[in-house]
Write a protein that binds this DNA or RNA. Structure first.
Length: 490
RNA sequence: CGGGGUGUGGCGCAGUUGGUAGCGCGCUACGUUCGGGACGUAGAGGCCGCAAGUUCGAGUCUUGUCACCCCGACCA
């Protein structure tokens, strides 16, 4: 089979889709807009899940689980939340099926209509705050720092594997606090946790910032996000953390007795990342040979491929390879010995590259004679012959090296494709090539909307770390105090 | 939901003016191979998305319908 995946393909979406399918990560299911996550794809998600879960617990959070179904009336309680989520949702209207009267198949039993429809959760703020009402009476009950790992459903018009599926896996943290300051600190803490995860584990640099009013989560006073650059120069929102103020507490009447004996509404946050991170991982690092996984998220770190002519030679190789495998495992690495005799070495090389395994060790008759192994790294595709007794140290060191190299490569790419401009014409030219733009904006929604209509670019965020500087809005020329991040986005 | 495209063995595709389906990959067996996706030989596998209609005859024409992909609008 010839190499078919290429990021030089005109259509980056197609490239991405092919890669997801060929690397055996996921496929479309029989259900519209839904996705089957295949074992290899799920193994990567599990690595992400485990690490994130660890980080949530380190910051004092605990896991819980809330219902999949939410009574429709809950959505009517928070006005601005209704705005945002009144649309694309799956609705349960009946609770029973029956045999059809013509004896051919099953129909919905019209007599089994629910009095109140249930919404399959698109996000859980409403049902969680309805529950928190019963949990909170005094400042002594606060804070509540709960996270849930769950699936949610949004009946999106247009879906794409991992980036936007009708059903997706995510985690959603929902916290309740006694003070505004504490809630804001939590919101900031969690966007930092996400950024650290993206950069240290996914090897994907991100820009942290605040969303504009237009892009803010429905019901939030403030939304922070991390934005990453994909290899086609487009932005992908990879995680969000919301400061919800007292909106949900007011909507669900969650009051508590303060230390001073007054009644006050609870302050809230919510934050989440989803299987979209898988899409980010794939699009940030992959190349023409397939996936490139950062070692810290690779389900398999090392694959060992034996090379031999006759089946009798395999045990001789295995004799050398198995101790090596054990040693590597003792150093905390996941090692696969690919001793399949049904495919040839060249095929295995290509297959493991497609799956993004960071390091490959090959060992054949030549190595047996010389006491060496061949070590190949996925990120650079470099191959080196190395004495057998140095292999373990070499591979262990490579893990860090590859992790750093992938991150730095992505960072360099982002730097090279991030531009600062004050000219609207140049602004449009840069967008057509793909990339991020730091430009001045007058702070109004109208301007933001117009730029979006004219260029398809949105304000991804107002980065936290940009300095104040006097300038003029890229579109209107009105005064601006700082540059914001513009890009076309997924 | 608007615009465009595609539905034919597991995958990717061809199929002429309508005449009863073919190619490549993959799969099975045997042999030679095995340090970058091997080669030869012999096989297996399809009521052409679904439903009506036109016709002596439909993969091909007509209508309807469904699914998927791409571009928008919506969104993580």
């Amino acid at each position: 089979m010839a190499k078919e995946v290429t990021n030089k393909q005109e259509n980056y979406s197609q490239w991405y889709n092919d890669l997801v399918v060929k690397a055996d990560l996921a496929e479309n299911s029989a259900v519209r807009g839904c996705m089957v996550i295949k074992p290899y794809g799920y193994a990567i998600w599990e690595k992400m899940h485990d690490q994130l879960d660890r980080m949530f617990k380190e910051t004092g959070h605990v896991n819980a689980y809330f219902p999949l179904f939410i009574p429709k009336s809950f959505f009517s309680k928070e006005a601005s939340h209704v705005e945002g989520f009144a649309k694309e949702c799956a609705v349960v209207t009946h609770y029973r099926l029956k045999n059809s009267s013509d004896g051919k198949g099953i129909v919905v039993d019209d007599d089994a209509r629910l009095e109140e429809e249930l919404i399959v959760r698109p996000t859980s703020e409403t049902i969680i705050w309805n529950t928190y009402k019963g949990w909170i009476q005094s400042y002594r009950d606060l804070p509540i720092l709960v996270n849930q790992w769950a699936n949610v459903v949004r009946w999106e018009m247009r879906t794409r594997l991992f980036l936007r599926t009708a059903e997706f896996l995510w985690q959603e943290g929902h916290t309740a606090h006694a003070t505004e300051a504490e809630a804001i600190a939590e919101t900031e803490q969690m966007i930092n946790v996400y950024a650290e995860f993206a950069e240290k584990y996914m090897a994907m640099p991100v820009i942290k910032g605040r969303k504009t009013a237009n892009e803010r989560f429905a019901g939030a006073l403030d939304t922070y996000s991390i934005e990453a650059m994909m290899q086609d120069g487009k932005a992908l929102q990879s995680g969000t953390s919301h400061f919800l103020g007292q909106n949900f507490a007011k909507a669900f009447d969650v009051k508590f007795a303060t230390r001073e004996g007054n009644l006050d509404y609870v302050w809230a946050t919510s934050w989440g990342v989803s299987t979209r991170l898988m899409g980010a991982l794939i699009m940030a690092h992959s190349d023409d040979n397939g996936l490139v996984l950062p070692p810290r998220l690779a389900p398999t770190h090392v694959v060992i491929v034996p090379i031999y002519r006759n089946p009798e030679q395999l045990p001789l190789l295995a004799e050398k390879i198995l101790p090596l495998k054990k040693e590597l495992e003792a150093r905390g690495l996941a090692v696969k010995f690919d001793d399949r005799d049904t495919v040839k070495p060249g095929f295995k090389f290509a297959e493991h590259e497609l799956k993004g395994i960071p390091v490959r060790i090959a060992m054949g008759p030549r190595d047996m004679e010389n006491g060496t192994v061949e070590i190949a790294r996925r990120d650079t595709l470099e191959k080196k012959t190395c004495p057998m007794n140095e292999a373990v140290e070499k591979v262990v060191a490579l893990m860090e090296e590859i992790q750093d190299h992938i991150y730095n490569k992505a960072l360099e790419f982002r730097k090279a494709n991030t531009h600062t401009t004050d000219s609207y014409r140049e602004f449009q030219e840069i967008l057509d090539k793909g990339g991020f733009i730091m430009a001045h904006w007058d702070g109004t929604s109208e301007t933001e909307e117009r730029i979006k209509e004219e260029t398809k670019a949105t304000i991804r965020c107002i980065p936290f770390d940009t300095p104040e500087e006097e300038g003029k809005c890229i579109l209107t020329g009105n005064p601006s105090k700082r540059r914001v991040l513009f890009a076309r986005a997924y």
